[in-house]
């Protein structure tokens, strides 16, 4: 008599990943890392304003030619945009679903409150919402030009200067850049932990890297509006 073999049918790996809390957190970590990598290049690119309109506008033009002649004009840019959009959506949907679950897992709070987590840790959810709103405004401002006082396509230098000559432009960017720093401060460490890179020996180094990245990105991004406000860039 043949023995019955145990043939368990398990759903595909991606489905199992998405269904579990650890898996969904992994999706958040990977999509966050993609956005973080983008932000580093974005920040460095922004610093071109300090070298004048020709260099900045030339750089923006060059971005559209990457990969030519293998890729058609602007194809690289569109590939990057599609990738980033996918990352933003995956990050947001996973964050929303996990947050709902987390809030349901702690339905009653303590009367005697004692918050001891850091400010960055406590503000991940609302900070993320602020950043998502900022990205929409930012695209309308400097990509499509709809809300930009100058709004000339192909002339990012002039558009950036126009934005930072308004009080609301400075306020919105200022708040968003602080929010992005806080988000990265907790997010980088959390992502490393989620991907399994944490260890007792490495935790300090990971936290220092997270703080360093957050500080460099926030200051690097803020240099542009501060440059315009102080008249270094005009």
């Amino acid at each position: 008599m043949a023995l019955a073999t145990r043939t368990e049918r398990r759903p595909p790996t991606v489905v199992r990943l998405w269904r579990s809390t650890i898996g969904k957190k992994t999706v958040m970590a990977v999509s966050g890392a993609i956005m973080l990598l983008y932000l580093v290049f974005h920040m460095l690119g922004n610093l071109k304003v300090f070298f004048g309109p020709d260099e900045m506008n030339g750089y923006a033009h060059w971005l559209r030619t990457i990969g030519e002649p293998v890729l058609h004009h602007e194809w690289f840019l569109w590939l990057a945009r599609v990738g980033l959009l996918a990352a933003v959506l995956a990050h947001g949907v996973a964050a929303y679903q996990l947050s709902r679950r987390d809030l349901a897992a702690r339905p009653v709070g303590y009367r005697h409150r004692r918050a001891r987590t850091s400010y960055a840790t406590r503000t991940m959810r609302w900070g993320g919402v602020i950043l998502a709103l900022f990205v929409v405004w930012h695209i309308l401002d400097l990509t499509t030009g709809h809300v930009n006082p100058n709004g000339e396509s192909g002339r990012p230098y002039e558009n950036v200067v126009a934005t930072f000559n308004t009080w609301y432009g400075n306020t919105i960017y200022g708040v968003a850049m602080v929010a992005v720093g806080l988000h990265i401060r907790h997010g980088f460490f959390s992502a490393a932990q989620t991907l399994g890179a944490g260890s007792a020996a490495r935790d300090r180094a990971l936290r220092l890297t997270a703080n360093g990245l957050a500080l460099v990105l926030t200051l690097g991004f803020l240099a542009v509006p501060v440059g315009v406000m102080t008249g270094v860039v005009e």
């Binding site: 579990s20 996990l98 349901a104 897992a105 932990q193 989620t194």
Partner: peptide, 17 residues
């Protein structure tokens, strides 16, 4: 982990509490 999720525990946000 599957049981942990099914029992209604929340996910980890690395707060360290």
């Amino acid at each position: 982990v599957e049981t942990m999720d099914a029992e209604g525990f929340g996910g980890c946000t690395n707060t360290g509490m």
